[in-house]
Amino acid sequence: MMAAVLEIDDINGRSLQQISAQGKVSPMLCYQCQKCTSGCPVASRADLKPHQVVRLVQMEQSDEVLSSRFIWECTSCHTCATRCPQKIDIASINDALRVRSKASAKVVPGTAVPTFNDLFLSAIRKRGRIHELSLMAAFKLHTMRLLADFDKLPMMIFKRKLPLIGSHVGQRREREAMFLRARRGEM
């Protein structure tokens, strides 16, 4: 799309600004001081920097924001939000953008983070808790990164860092129902 064109994202009738404000501080208060970017641990490698994301949200440039690598590389460290002189919660804005990016099928190719998140939540739904070894195995199978970190497994098992069997919590049926209610009640 042409960068100069203002595109109002109207999925679910809500603009980028609306999903980003979430009833708290409006992203419109940003005056581009770049304090967020100065402290951001991934700004130097990302395709967008935090202050640029906020500016693009102000301008409703949804394609640029929702298909950026940045939103998936943000570590949720909250340095940006902590230091923002206007108290804009950039880290939470980013969470909202990830949700929107996935819902509107704009996730940048090459990131495995959404897959990891899905597997993580599905493990909670089924078992109630995360069993790290099972989660790692599922992630490897889904992403075909079969050999990544394979060298560490024997030592981690020897050091008792990866129990072969994880603890379970009962009440799976109740939990599945809870997840379903959460999906229906999406905020």
Partner: peptide
């Protein structure tokens, strides 16, 4: 019977679940 807090996976994909867990 504690369950997982949802961690980063929940708050970056489902805000309601991230509060509910």
């Amino acid at each position: 019977d504690w369950i997982c807090c949802g961690s980063t996976a929940a708050h970056s994909s489902d805000p309601l679940l991230a509060d509910a867990l």
